[in-house]
Structure formats: C-alpha cells, structure tokens
Amino acid sequence: MIRHMIFWDLADPDVDRGELETFLKATFDPMVGAVPGLRCAHIGFDQGMGTHDVGLCCDLDSLEALAAYQDYPPHVAFKSWAKEHFKTRCCVDLEVSE
C-alpha cells in the first residue's frame, strides 16, 4: 500500500479556514471510491505542533493507483487551484504494510 502525504503552507494566512476546510473536504471526499485504488483521503489543518498549515494523507493500493490518482481530472484541477492558494508544498509517498 502507498501512503501519499502532502503538506502545504497557506499563501494567505488570513483565509477563512472554515470555508477552506469545507472546500477541501468537498474536493477530496468524492475521490474515494471514484479513483480506482484510492482507499481513503484525509485533509485538514495542522493542530498547532506541525511545520505546515494543511495536510493531506491518502492511502492507495499501489503505485499504479497513485499514478491514476495523479491524472484524475478533479485532482488535476485541484493541483492547479493549489498553485495559487498555497505557497509551499512538501510530498512524501511511503510504502506501508496494511
């Protein structure tokens, strides 16, 4: 299984976090079950001890599923949106046992 983790810093630290969290969940929740091999997607704000503002953690069946997720049209649209709303990005893809 692949654990895909992304961390971002907000471009606008004064953004309405409630609205942004609603948007992020509405973007990622429907991908689970729609993208083959995407088991779960959790996204939200750091709780005060991390180094970034927002984190995403997805579990996928395989590297092939990760590749399909990368090309999934709603995810492609989100990546374009993210370039305008986040200033930094850190990504790690780990192989983990189930």
Rank of each mutant, 00 (worst) to 15 (best):
M31P: 06
F7D: 01
L94C: 12
W81Y: 15
M1E: 05
M31E: 12
V35Q: 05
E19R: 06
D59F: 15
L10D: 07
P30L: 02
P36L: 10
G33A: 08
G48S: 10
E84N: 13
D16A: 10
E21Y: 00
L10R: 08
V35T: 09
H52R: 15
M1H: 12
E84H: 14
M1C: 09
E21M: 01
T22G: 00
H75C: 06
A68D: 10
L94R: 00
P74V: 08
M5P: 00
D71N: 11
K83I: 02
L56Q: 11
S62W: 12
R39C: 02
G33L: 08
D59H: 15
Y72S: 10
D14I: 01
P73K: 10
E21H: 02
Y72N: 04
L20Q: 02
C58T: 14
L66Q: 08
S97R: 08
E21R: 02
T22H: 02
E84A: 15
D29P: 01
G50F: 09
P74T: 08
S62L: 05
T22R: 03
T88S: 15
A67S: 10
H52V: 01
D16P: 03
A68L: 07
A82S: 15
D12M: 08
D61G: 05
F28W: 14
E21N: 04
D16Y: 09
V92K: 03
P73E: 10
K79F: 03
S62K: 04
V32P: 02
I43R: 03
E98M: 06
E84Q: 15
E19C: 00
P36G: 09
E98D: 12
D53F: 06
M1S: 13
D93Q: 05
P74K: 09
D16E: 10
K83V: 07
A65S: 14
F7S: 12
P74C: 08
F23C: 00
F7I: 00
V96T: 14
C57Q: 11
T51H: 12
A82C: 11
V35E: 06
V76I: 14
T51A: 14
L10S: 09
C90Q: 11
D93N: 12
F7C: 11
M1R: 09
P30K: 05
E84Y: 08
G55H: 11
D71R: 13
E19F: 00
W8Q: 07
F23L: 08
G18S: 10
A26S: 14
R3H: 04
R17T: 11
R89F: 05
L63I: 01
P73N: 09
K25H: 04
F45P: 07
D93M: 06
K83H: 12
W8M: 09
V76G: 03
H52I: 00
A41R: 06
K87I: 13
A68E: 12
W8E: 04
D59E: 15
P13K: 13
E98P: 01
D93K: 04
A67R: 13
D61C: 04
A82T: 11
D71G: 03
R89Y: 01
T51P: 00
D9A: 04
C40D: 15
A82G: 10
L66N: 02
H85F: 07
D71Y: 01
G55Q: 07
V15P: 01
K25Y: 00
E95G: 04
